[in-house]
């Protein structure tokens, strides 16, 4: 009887139903987050945990390898956003128009890479970007009469390889986001624009882009964090966490190196929190600039 009363009680039941989520959220998310903050002020060794104040953060400021990692992650984030918003948007508009035949096939083909494992695709890309003349990319270059490039040994080429992998994998996903955004745009707007004699470009410029804005902001927000937290792609491309002159080292790669490989959990926590701070700051600025926090206009 009592149990039944709880289930039927309008006050208690909702809490009961969200309890499993709250519990797992607390145990797996809230606790680790606070624990990380605590650990970032400690030096942690087996059986020897010491409070060391801001030492970890002071070291981060001077740590040139960490600075390289930040530079790499920021560059990667910037270019991945520059590539992964315009192109998927363009593809989505194409898919939504009558210009393309066999749309399902195209959509499937573009989305398929997202279903593959990065471990496998990364390994394949590593072989394709091999410095040997027989590597796939160098074979293409030789068709163009160019000399082979040591792709994974030079900074610019390495970033190129990372971005190729990134675009190959995520174009389809972003395209789907934009497609769903396009579906929610009222077709009568386009009709009335046509009646007023608007060109295709003007319709895209003045109807599609503004009305796609919520989707664009969403994609931008997740891309900022996805770009900053990239790790596995680089880990697979160099078959491990070390690349020549750290050209493939990312912030999370550095966190892994410190925390897992060198057992410096405290220092790694500081790295992780710096990443969290950077992602939050960039996203908050971006959202403010986009006017997302402004009150809805009537």
């Amino acid at each position: 009887m009592k149990i039944k009363r709880i289930f039927y009680s309008q006050k208690a039941a909702p809490f009961l139903f969200v309890l499993p989520f709250l519990l797992s959220f607390t145990v797996f998310w809230i606790y680790p987050l606070f624990s990380t903050v605590k650990m970032s002020f400690q030096s942690i060794l087996p059986g020897q945990i010491e409070w060391i104040g801001l030492t970890n953060y002071e070291k981060l400021l001077k740590d040139t390898t960490f600075h390289t990692a930040i530079r790499n992650s920021l560059t990667y984030m910037f270019f991945s956003i520059a590539l992964l918003i315009p192109f998927p948007m363009f593809f989505a508009v194409l898919m939504d128009s009558n210009l393309v035949k066999a749309k399902g096939l195209w959509k499937g083909a573009l989305y398929l890479p997202a279903l593959t494992s990065v471990v496998i695709s990364g390994t394949l890309f590593r072989l394709m970007f091999s410095e040997l003349p027989t590597g796939q990319m160098n074979v293409f270059l030789s068709f163009l009469g160019k000399a082979p490039i040591p792709w994974l040994k030079e900074k610019g080429f390495a970033m190129c390889a990372l971005l190729t992998l990134c675009c190959w994998r995520w174009t389809g996903v972003n395209m789907l986001y934009f497609l769903s955004g396009l579906k929610s745009i009222d077709t009568t707007l386009y009709e009335s624009a046509s009646i007023d004699g608007a060109s295709a470009w003007n319709k895209f410029r003045y109807i599609t882009i503004p009305l796609l804005r919520p989707t664009t902001i969403y994609v931008l927000t997740i891309s900022v964090y996805a770009g900053l937290s990239m790790f596995l792609e680089s880990f697979m491309l160099w078959a491990g966490n070390s690349s020549p002159k750290n050209i493939g080292l990312t912030i999370v790669g550095y966190l892994y190196k410190r925390g897992i490989e060198k057992n410096q959990m405290g220092y790694a926590s500081a790295v992780g929190l710096t990443l969290l701070g950077m992602a939050l700051i960039i996203n908050v600025i971006q959202l403010i600039l986009n006017g997302t926090f402004k009150k809805e206009e009537n």
């Binding site: 998310w29 680790p32 987050l33 471990v119 902001i217 969403y218 927000t221 997740i222 900022v224 964090y225 996805a226 937290s229 790790f231 596995l232 880990f235 697979m236 078959a239 491990g240 966490n241 070390s242 999370v252 966190l255 892994y256 897992i260 992780g272 990443l275 969290l276 992602a279 939050l280 996203n283 959202l287 997302t292």
Partner: peptide
């Protein structure tokens, strides 16, 4: 947007270690 950012940050980075000779 906020929820997704939070989720991604909190869930952190899963890592799949490979060999690194």
């Amino acid at each position: 947007a906020g929820a997704v950012t939070a989720a991604m940050i909190l869930s952190g980075c899963s890592s799949k270690a490979g060999t690194d000779p």
